[in-house]
Design a protein around this nucleic acid. Sequence first.
RNA 1: GCGUCGAUGGUAGAGUGGUCAAAUACGACACGCUGUAAACGUGUUGCCUUCGGGCUUCGGGGGUUCGAAUCCCUCUCGACGCACCA
Length: 406
Amino acid sequence: MKLVKQEDLRSGGASKIEELLTRGVDKIYPSKEALEKELFSGKKLKLYQGFDPTGIKLHLGHMVGFRKHRQWQDLGHEVIFLIGDGTGQAGDPTGKKQTREKFFTQEELRANSKDYLSQASKIVRFDGLNPIKILYNSDWLNKLTLVDILNIAQNFSVQQLIERDMFQERLKAGESINLREFLYPLLQGYDSVAMDVDLELGGSDQTFNMLTGRTLMKSMKNKEKFVMTTPLLSDSKGVKIGKSEGNVIGLTDAPNDLFGKIMSLGDDAIIPMFTLLTDVPIEEINKFDLKKDAMSLKKQVASIIITQLHDEASAKSAADSFASTFQKKEIPNKMQEVKAKAGEFLSEVLVKNKILSSKSEWRRLVAGNAIHDLSINKTITDVDLKISQDLTLKIGKKKFIKVILN
RNA sequence: GCGUCGAUGGUAGAGUGGUCAAAUACGACACGCUGUAAACGUGUUGCCUUCGGGCUUCGGGGGUUCGAAUCCCUCUCGACGCACCA
């Protein structure tokens, strides 16, 4: 895996800036040229990205932003990692076809964000040279008085806020737009004012919210705030990577899980992953032939990502264990073990140990030839199998279980 | 305040007295084909089962009925419309 070429940061500043402004960038407001000019003037910018902790896990989608942070950071700019425990209370309506059923309290948000930093620290630096600053926006949002809020609100018209497609669709569909979420962009916009930043970074889905901050900066601080959006990482199935539950690819997932999850993404995610999540030079990425090498490219990108999140050794062992488990159909050397007594029903042991959710599920799996006894290499067809010896089971494609007598 | 509508399985969304464990779609799972991919095809998708069937589910509670997701009462929550606005 010798694809990663670390460019010397001190030399080639111009190409660094070019990369900062183009790679993994969706749009820049007001324009790339304007920002470029600013950067070439040697000015150090103050920038931030906010993350509303509506869940406890950061995922691969967040990593896109973090890598951008890192680039800014490495170029000596002041980067703020903002935890949205204030904005989160309003509930970002972005992408929501309906008002969310539940709004988070500040306590819940704080609790969720507990592990954000350790997760993010795999990519960005919170210490050392030019560390990233961590701020919580409840620190200023919760202190706003009514008059403050009114003064913020006066900069916008209802028409401006309601023009968002998502609200228009809701209006058309007779869905409600809760005033609480309606005000969300104002709060996020005010973050920019409170921190007096020069630039805001965020996923392209955040464009509207970020531009609100731009408007607010102009009217309240008479300052031009830049907005840089990053593309959203996804495969053909769309939201799989940033999905709020189930198959999220979490930054703290074990190497083997990461490898597996990345491998199971559609091929159309390969190039975006290389572009957004690795340092492989663009010229090289452009030469990739997806038709020919999709499989090996996906493995490469998986290894590179895991190296960033863990280390090279785990990436290698994940790749190996992937290869032996799934490609050569070997048995993985580490697997979950459950204890059992001789004579117990296998079905009951599996249910008891929460490997299966019910006996009905067991029946279904057996009926579908999904349970294999690897020690004798046979498919289990007996629903009422009793355990008489140690067993090595493969359940479905991905689950491996060792049953040990005691 | 008045009125209308709504609350169904992981999600969306049918069903409006028995044929309902509840259509359909999506998701999920399994199998086949593969590259643990995608696409495609097939099957499964409440729990228990001696595979006959049994049991518990349609916002909460109560009722009518031989029988309720479906009807009535009530409570909770929500949406929409109308009115009011010192």
